Amino acid sequence: MDETGKELVLALYDYQEKSPREVTMKKGDILTLLNSTNKDWWKVEVKITVNGKTYERQGAVPAAYVKKL
């Protein structure tokens, strides 16, 4: 869990989004888990830093590609 009490997951593999509802992640990324009720796809929040600014993006990733921490 992070400092706000939200559950975290670890990306076990790289994943490139294939639709606007998904998010890209790299192996080793730590993501915030938002919903894991679907056994195949979990909704997560990814933090992306671009030019020193951090953005948050929500989307789905394959459940088999992440592990709860």
Score class of each variant (00 low, 15 high):
residue 1 M to H: 14
residue 1 M to W: 13
residue 2 D to Y: 12
residue 2 D to K: 13
residue 3 E to D: 13
residue 4 T to L: 12
residue 6 K to V: 13
residue 7 E to T: 13
residue 7 E to C: 15
residue 8 L to I: 07
residue 10 L to T: 05
residue 10 L to E: 10
residue 11 A to V: 09
residue 11 A to E: 03
residue 11 A to S: 04
residue 11 A to C: 12
residue 12 L to K: 03
residue 12 L to V: 06
residue 12 L to M: 09
residue 13 Y to R: 15
residue 13 Y to S: 07
residue 13 Y to T: 07
residue 15 Y to C: 06
residue 15 Y to S: 00
residue 15 Y to T: 00
residue 16 Q to K: 11
residue 16 Q to I: 14
residue 17 E to F: 09
residue 17 E to R: 14
residue 17 E to T: 07
residue 17 E to G: 15
residue 18 K to N: 09
residue 19 S to T: 10
residue 20 P to F: 09
residue 20 P to L: 09
residue 20 P to C: 11
residue 20 P to A: 10
residue 21 R to L: 14
residue 23 V to K: 01
residue 23 V to L: 11
residue 23 V to M: 08
residue 23 V to N: 02
residue 23 V to R: 03
residue 25 M to T: 01
residue 26 K to E: 04
residue 27 K to S: 06
residue 27 K to F: 03
residue 28 G to D: 03
residue 28 G to F: 03
residue 28 G to A: 02
residue 28 G to Q: 01
residue 28 G to M: 03
residue 29 D to A: 06
residue 30 I to T: 04
residue 31 L to P: 00
residue 31 L to K: 01
residue 31 L to A: 06
residue 32 T to A: 08
residue 32 T to F: 09
residue 32 T to I: 14
residue 32 T to W: 10
residue 33 L to G: 00
residue 33 L to T: 00
residue 35 N to I: 07
residue 35 N to L: 07
residue 35 N to S: 12
residue 35 N to G: 07
residue 35 N to K: 07
residue 36 S to Y: 07
residue 36 S to E: 15
residue 37 T to F: 08
residue 37 T to H: 10
residue 38 N to P: 04
residue 39 K to H: 10
residue 39 K to E: 10
residue 41 W to I: 02
residue 41 W to A: 00
residue 41 W to S: 01
residue 42 W to Y: 07
residue 42 W to H: 02
residue 42 W to E: 00
residue 43 K to D: 14
residue 43 K to W: 15
residue 43 K to N: 10
residue 43 K to L: 15
residue 44 V to N: 00
residue 44 V to I: 06
residue 46 V to K: 13
residue 47 K to W: 08
residue 48 I to D: 04
residue 48 I to P: 00
residue 48 I to E: 08
residue 48 I to N: 06
residue 50 V to H: 09
residue 51 N to T: 04
residue 51 N to F: 09
residue 52 G to W: 03
residue 52 G to L: 04
residue 52 G to Q: 05
residue 53 K to R: 13
residue 53 K to W: 09
residue 53 K to E: 11
residue 54 T to I: 11
residue 55 Y to D: 03
residue 57 R to Q: 05
residue 58 Q to H: 08
residue 58 Q to P: 03
residue 60 A to E: 15
residue 60 A to W: 15
residue 60 A to R: 15
residue 61 V to D: 02
residue 61 V to W: 03
residue 61 V to R: 00
residue 62 P to W: 06
residue 62 P to Y: 06
residue 63 A to H: 03
residue 63 A to V: 05
residue 64 A to G: 10
residue 64 A to P: 06
residue 64 A to Q: 11
residue 65 Y to E: 02
residue 65 Y to H: 06
residue 67 K to N: 03
residue 67 K to F: 08
residue 68 K to A: 07
residue 68 K to F: 08
residue 68 K to W: 06
residue 68 K to D: 02
residue 69 L to W: 07
residue 69 L to M: 09
residue 69 L to I: 13
